[in-house]
Computed example of a mutant assay.
Amino acid sequence: MPKVQETVLEINLSALTHNYHYLKSKLQPETKFLAVVKAFAYGSDSVAIAKHLETLGVDYFAVAYTQEGVVLRDAGIRTPILVLHPQSLNADTLIDRCLEPSIYSARLLKDFIATAEKRGQTNYPVHIKFNTGLNRLGFGEQDIAGITEQLSATKAVQAKSIFSHLAASEDLTENDFTALQINRFKTFAETFKRLSGTTPWMHLCNTSGIINYSEAHFNMVRSGIGLYGFGNCDEEDANLQPIASLKSVISQIHEVEKGHSVGYNRAFTTSRKECIATIPIGHADGLSRIYGQKKGFVYINDQKAFIVGNVCMDMIMVNVTDINCQEGDEVIVFDAKYKANTLAESAATISYEILTALSQRIKRIIVGE
């Protein structure tokens, strides 16, 4: 790849293909694959990612909010889309755009059925979300009889699937709790099927669930972070390829005399004559202020350069005193070699956060296939 001349996010579709096929290799041939493309496909480009995954034969997509699904439909995506956290006011839009809601509360079930009936729908697909221990969204076991009664009383909607979400599938020290969730989900599913007289799909596993709990793959699995190149542990990270490379450029280099300060609030003071490089990326681009004061770093000519002072809105300053570099040189924030989770760990956070925080003002460049 040619050296960049501005801040860009390169999105590698060849790496996406690799990750998709690797995760698919963990499944039985009949198990369906749902790709999670919420939050701009984990900070990348939801349309480009969804279009490529369609060519690979993905079975379903999932987004968090209704508008994210609208964006995909406007871009020509025709694969079924599950909306994980819709609100009652979204019901008409969901139907207009053929988006399938997760139904996680009695209020939402009542409101969506009313809209679907008013709109003359027949067997509109919905997905019933159960809470098996994450305690975030979803129905409990005590709600099953009421849910099935409401579904049986209408022809407007039908349960396409029932699903839940694992709380700690990446942490094998929590194996007992995950096993409890799996068994609880099986119990909920059997009760739902018995009372409803239907056999909806079942899905429970996220990326780490795919890798660690093959007995819980059921009819479909859902993968988010794994598609983007992270397996939540070093062993699985080695089997995946990060699709995103965040790159920038040195705008200017200053020689700052000993005892002089750098940046807002004079947060860094030189201990000797030092070379400070300014780079056009800041907290408005998603590089949080927490990475200031030498917690964060970038790579210039394969050497680590620590951020000095506070992260500014549109730029950072890094110490390049002992690095052979010049203005215009490429800067790597993270890529397939210098991974985002390493940078995230320096600030006691996770790759998900740094990826999904990336501003949409950063230019996206599609590379690979």
Rank of each mutant, 00 (worst) to 15 (best):
L94W: 01
A106H: 02
L99E: 05
D96Y: 03
A116N: 05
T115R: 04
S102K: 04
T93M: 02
N123F: 08
P125M: 11
P101I: 09
I113Y: 01
N123D: 11
G120R: 13
G138F: 10
E100G: 07
T122K: 15
T122A: 12
L89T: 07
C98L: 14
A116P: 08
G138Y: 10
H127Q: 15
R97N: 12
N135Q: 15
S105H: 08
G133R: 15
S88Q: 07
G138N: 12
K129S: 10
L89Q: 09
L94E: 03
T115F: 02
F112L: 01
E100N: 13
K110R: 02
R97S: 06
G140Q: 10
T115N: 04
G140S: 11
S105F: 08
V126E: 06
L99D: 03
L99R: 07
D96P: 01
A116W: 04
H127C: 13
R119N: 12
L89G: 07
V126A: 06
A114C: 05
I128S: 10
A106D: 04
N90G: 03
K129C: 12
N90E: 07
I113E: 04
Y124L: 05
R97M: 07
L94Y: 05
F139I: 10
D111M: 06
E100D: 09
I95G: 00
L108T: 03
G133S: 14
T115I: 10
R136V: 14
F139R: 06
T132H: 12
Q121C: 14
L89S: 10
S102Y: 08
K110M: 02
A116G: 10
C98I: 12
T122L: 13
F139V: 05
I103K: 04
D92P: 01
C98M: 15
R136S: 14
I95Y: 04
T132P: 13
D96T: 09
R97G: 03
A91V: 00
